[in-house]
Amino acid sequence: MLRTTEESQITITQLMLPSHSNFSGKIHGGYILGLMDQIAFACASKHSRNYCVTASVNKVDFLNPIEVGELVTLKASVNYTGKTSMVIGVRVESENIQTGEKKHCNSSYFTMVAKDENGKNVPVPGIILDTKNKVRRFARSIARQEQAKNRTTAFRTSEFKMELYLDSLKGQNAKIELIDTN
């Protein structure tokens, strides 16, 4: 079965309250991460028509602070579908209600896995790639998966070759003082 990405896209907007702020008066990043996880869950569950769990989150950069009193809009869309998993792209924007100024605050990619009532992985519908942008997002998800596999292999304790990385440590805020060579 195939579905369009539009069938499962979700957008939510929420007013940022003082109770959402951190000690510096900006909206707490953890609060935004929680909202991002919720919308990724909703999008993945809507697409798969199953309960979904978060398997991983790919890099979250906080690009701009969010102020108390701003509207925050989160948009989620299925970017990739595997056998039982989906990559959900989430974009966060804030809007100053008084000026109308909008800021891109962050984007991230949530890998969500569909589960049945017994907690077993279940197949998910594929997506129809009907625009160049959707093909780009799908291909980008595949590339990110490959990069993640390479990262985990190269830095496994049994595979790590320290001499390959010594040059990259030069000029860093660290000093190597090995006690043992393991």
Rank of each mutant, 00 (worst) to 15 (best):
G89N: 07
P123E: 12
A139S: 15
N79V: 01
V90R: 01
Y51K: 13
L17Q: 14
Q14A: 05
S48W: 05
E93Y: 08
P18C: 08
A143D: 15
V90W: 01
G29L: 07
N50G: 03
L129Y: 03
A44K: 03
L169W: 12
S45W: 04
S168I: 12
E95I: 05
T84K: 09
K46W: 00
S19R: 10
L17W: 07
E117D: 12
N22Y: 03
A76R: 03
I97C: 04
Y31K: 06
K161R: 11
H20Q: 08
L2A: 13
P123Q: 06
R49M: 09
S94H: 02
N121K: 14
T5I: 15
M16A: 10
N50Y: 12
V68W: 01
M36H: 04
R3I: 14
V57F: 02
G82I: 05
N118C: 03
A174P: 05
T152G: 02
E159G: 04
R151A: 13
K102H: 04
K120S: 11
K161A: 09
V72I: 13
R140L: 05
L178T: 02
K170P: 09
E163R: 12
G100A: 06
D116F: 02
G25V: 01
L74I: 08
R137T: 06
N133E: 15
Q172G: 09
K26P: 05
S48P: 12
K46F: 00
S8I: 04
A44H: 04
E159Y: 00
F110Q: 06
N150E: 13
N118E: 14
L71I: 06
G69R: 08
T5M: 13
S24R: 13
H28C: 09
I10Y: 03
M16I: 06
N22F: 05
N118G: 09
N106K: 03
H47M: 02
T157L: 12
T111Q: 07
G34D: 04
I10C: 14
G100N: 08
S108P: 00
K83Y: 09
V68E: 05
R136V: 10
S85I: 01
D116K: 03
S158Y: 01
I12N: 13
K161Y: 00
K170Q: 15
G100W: 10
N121P: 11
E95T: 12
G126V: 06
S94M: 01
R136N: 14
I176E: 05
A44M: 06
K75C: 07
A114C: 06
G100L: 05
P125K: 08
G126Q: 13
M86Q: 15
L178M: 12
Y31M: 09
I39Q: 07
Y51T: 13
R3Q: 14
T54Y: 08
H104D: 15
T4P: 00
K132A: 15
T181Y: 13
N58S: 12
R91Y: 01
S107Q: 09
I128H: 01
V60M: 11
I10D: 09
V113Q: 09
K75I: 04
K134A: 11
P125F: 08
S108I: 02
A114Q: 03
K115T: 08
Q9D: 13
R156W: 00
E146S: 14
Q145G: 15
L33R: 01
